[in-house]
């Protein structure tokens, strides 16, 4: 997994609440067996009309937002389907940081497995940051310091220390868990004794 340390970008502001993962990447693109290549279809139905032409009004179709690395959005972002294609599509488009006042659980977790930082901020701060999107000014995000710098202001954010460490170091979850192999093995042994029906072989 790619590390996330800090980024600087003009943020794109998408003021819609309850954006679900169907909206982030519709099902017709779930037929892929790869993780890459989904960026061009990110927010497909908001981004393209019935004929496949770009909808000029949509923020990610406009300059400079087509290069934004930071997406600011309404609350409960990423609700609905568990599809990891949603963070894959964001990543493939180039977005590595999302800022919202809340996220759906599965999406939130999925971000961390893909080197994307989802930041939780209160609505008030989000309004302030959205001004920077309107004015096309850069903001910067520093994970180690847990802060967003915009103009002369700073906003601190909270993050689970372990998740932070994994992002900063780009750690592979599975490798970390496999270090606990002994513990898993002894758990399985106990399980076979105490609940033999689980293995049912």
């Amino acid at each position: 997994m790619k590390k996330f340390i800090s980024i600087k970008s003009i943020p794109a502001y998408l003021p819609i609440v309850n954006i679900d993962t169907d909206m982030i990447i519709p099902k017709q693109f779930l037929k892929t067996i790869k993780r890459t290549g989904l960026g061009k279809n990110l927010f497909f139905e908001l981004r393209y009309d019935d004929k496949g032409n770009k909808i000029e009004d949509f923020i990610l179709n406009q300059k400079p937002y087509d290069n934004s690395k930071i997406l600011i959005t309404g609350k409960n972002f990423g609700c609905g389907s568990s599809r990891e294609h949603a963070p894959w599509a964001l990543l493939d488009f180039g977005i590595t940081c999302v800022i919202s006042s809340s996220y759906a659980d599965i999406f939130y977790n999925n971000c961390f497995k893909n080197g994307i930082l989802p930041i939780i901020l209160e609505e008030e701060k989000i309004k302030e940051l959205s001004e920077y999107s309107h004015r096309k000014e850069e903001i910067s995000v520093d994970l180690n310091e847990q802060k967003i710098v915009y103009g002369n202001n700073e906003a601190k954010f909270d993050i689970d220390p372990f998740k932070k460490k994994c992002l900063l170091e780009g750690l592979d979850d599975i490798a970390l868990s496999l270090e606990k192999s002994d513990k898993i093995t002894s758990f399985e042994k106990n399980l076979k004794n105490n609940k033999p029906w689980i293995f049912n072989d």
């Binding site: 990891e84 963070p87 999925n110 893909n114």
Partner: peptide, 20 residues
Amino acid sequence: FGIGTSEVEHVLATQTLVQK
């Protein structure tokens, strides 16, 4: 509960899941 694809891989490889 539902999980993402990276977690599917994690379960296949370790039969466990990282959770809070």
